[in-house]
Simulated scan of single mutants.
Amino acid sequence: MNARAPDLPALPAEEMLRLDNQVCFALHATSRAFDALYRSLLRDLGLTYPQYLVMLTLWESDGLTVKDLGARLRLDSGTLSPLVKRLESAGLVERRRGRQDERSVSVHLTAEGAALRERAAAVPPRVMEASGLGTDELRDLRGMLLKLTERLDATNA
């Protein structure tokens, strides 16, 4: 288990259960705001946010197995398979069965899927602009969120 977090000043019981004092709710509200922002930014690309995450991952590492893609995105196969099927129907990816093991399926970008990367390059700067945060602030925030995720994963293991 990771080192114990520094002691925080105790809040009165009635304050501990206030919605506005919950980190989880702040993260939930932020996630919903990001969803709305990405929905509008990705509309022109014809992608949903989860599909965008799949494409980002494949633009980094084309040809991942569905299992590796799911691990990277923290998605189970029941969630990931329909995403990949929709991307395949849109002509952006193709699935290939393994030659050695037909149970293994890898996902590959099509030429159209690879070309979409150029148009998607406009998305991150627009997200950064909408956030109103600078590069260093976003890097620090991302680092804190990764650390929080790691600690929560360790607690839930």
Rank of each mutant, 00 (worst) to 15 (best):
S89L: 15
C24W: 08
L87C: 06
G134Y: 09
R18W: 08
R117K: 11
A121N: 03
L27C: 15
L73R: 08
G113P: 03
L73T: 02
R4I: 09
L45E: 00
S77G: 10
R95G: 14
E60I: 03
V23I: 08
S81D: 05
L109Y: 01
K147L: 15
E118T: 00
A157D: 08
V84M: 11
S61V: 07
S81L: 10
L47G: 08
L53Q: 14
D20L: 02
T79H: 09
K85F: 06
P124L: 11
P124D: 00
L58P: 01
L58K: 00
R39I: 01
S106H: 08
L69F: 01
V105D: 05
D7W: 10
L42H: 03
A157W: 07
E14N: 05
E129T: 03
G91A: 08
T155I: 07
D140F: 11
A13Q: 09
R18H: 13
R126S: 13
S131I: 07
R4S: 07
S61G: 05
L141D: 05
P50M: 12
T65C: 02
L69K: 01
A157Q: 11
Q22H: 12
M144W: 04
L45K: 01
A71D: 14
M128G: 14
S40Y: 02
L56H: 04
V23A: 11
R95P: 04
Q51R: 13
R126Y: 09
L141Y: 11
R72F: 06
A3E: 14
L73P: 03
G132M: 03
Q100F: 09
G132E: 05
S31A: 14
A114L: 12
V23H: 01
E102N: 04
R97Y: 11
E15L: 08
C24S: 12
A130P: 01
N156F: 07
R117T: 00
R142F: 14
S131H: 01
K67N: 06
L133F: 15
A36V: 06
L17H: 10
P124I: 00
L41G: 02
R4H: 04
L148S: 09
G63L: 14
L53I: 00
D35A: 11
R72S: 11
Y52K: 05
E60Y: 06
H28E: 14
E137S: 15
A10D: 12
S89Q: 15
R18K: 14
L80S: 05
L27D: 11
D44A: 14
D7N: 08
A26K: 13
S106P: 08
A120G: 12
G113F: 07
H108P: 07
R4T: 06
Y52V: 01
R103F: 11
A33D: 13
P124R: 06
L133P: 10
